[in-house]
Design a protein around this nucleic acid. Sequence first.
DNA 1: CAGTTATTATTAGCCGGCTAATTATCATTG
DNA 2: CAATGATAATTAGCCGGCTAATAATAACTG
Lengths: 148, 148
Amino acid sequence: MKFEETVSHLLSRVATAHKAHLEKRLAGVGLHGGQLSVLFELWRRDGRRQVDLAREIGLATPTVNKILNGMIEVGLVDRTRLEDDARATRIYLTDEGHAIRSRVEEVWLEVEEELLSEFTETERYILFDLLTKVRNYYFGIDPDQTNE
Amino acid sequence: MKFEETVSHLLSRVATAHKAHLEKRLAGVGLHGGQLSVLFELWRRDGRRQVDLAREIGLATPTVNKILNGMIEVGLVDRTRLEDDARATRIYLTDEGHAIRSRVEEVWLEVEEELLSEFTETERYILFDLLTKVRNYYFGIDPDQTNE
DNA sequence: CAGTTATTATTAGCCGGCTAATTATCATTG
DNA sequence: CAATGATAATTAGCCGGCTAATAATAACTG
C-alpha cells in the first residue's frame, strides 16, 4: 500500500510545510501563527467574548486562551471583564493591534502568492473550491450563526 | 480584505480539522498521529538511522527522536547503536510494529474515504494533483536520494 | 429561595512541530 | 598524531492544537 499516494498524506505534509513557511514570514512582523487567526477575527469585529471568538475561529477555548495570553503580553489586545456577567470577558484590540494590520495583510498576500505561484487562475479557483468542499464536510455548512 | 477567501487560510483550517479527525480514528488502534509517518517510512524499509528517517519523512531530527521515544515505550520499535559508528542508531520495527500494520491500513483507507466522500473520481484526482504541485513547490522535486 | 445544572474562563498536561545548544564521535587536515 | 571541523543523537524550551478537570458565576427549577 502506498501511503504517499493518498490525499490525506499529501494534505498533512503540505499543511505542515506551509505552516512553517508562514511562521517564518510572520516572524518579520513579530507575530506567531496562532495569533493570526485571532487577529483576523478581531479585525472583523472587536470586543467579543472569548468563547464566541473561539467558536467562530474554530478552536478550543483553552487554545485561544493561551494565544490571547501571549497577545496581551506583547500588547496586541486587552481583556475586559463583562459587567453583567462576571464569568465572561471581552477581547479588545489595542492601538498596536489595529496598527499592525496593514503590515500583516501585506505579508499574508505575499504568502498566498508564493503558495500559488505555479498555479494558473483556473487552478487556483479549483483548488479553493475543492478545499472548501472538504471544509464544509468537516465543519458542516456553517450558517454563520453569530450569536452574542 | 477577506482572509477567509484565501487558499492559505483554507489549507490551515482544513488540515487542522483533518488532523484532529485522524487522531480520533487512530486512537482506536492505540496510535498517535506523529507515529504514523514514522511507521509508514519503517514499513517501507526497516533498520534505518534516525537522521535518514527524519530526512525521508521531512521532519526535524528532534521531532522524530521524541516520537521514537514514545514508540519504544509502547513497544513498536527498537533502537540499536551502530557498531561502526557510535554516534548513530538504527531503528527496527518490533513484531508488534509489524503486526499493527494491517489494522492501521484499514483505518487509513477509511479516513481517506471519509475525507473524499463527497468527491467524484475526477475531483479526487485533481485535488491530488494540485496538492502535489504545492508539495513540489515547498520541497522541491525530490529526486529520492536515499543515501546510507 | 435553595439546589441543581449550564456556562465561562482558566489550569494542567499531553502530542507534535520547531530551533538552539550539548555531547559524543567520526573525519579531515596540517 | 593533534587539532579542527562535521555529523548523530539528544536535551531544553517555545508555540499551538487538544481533552479533562476546577472555580466562579449565571440560570433554571422545584
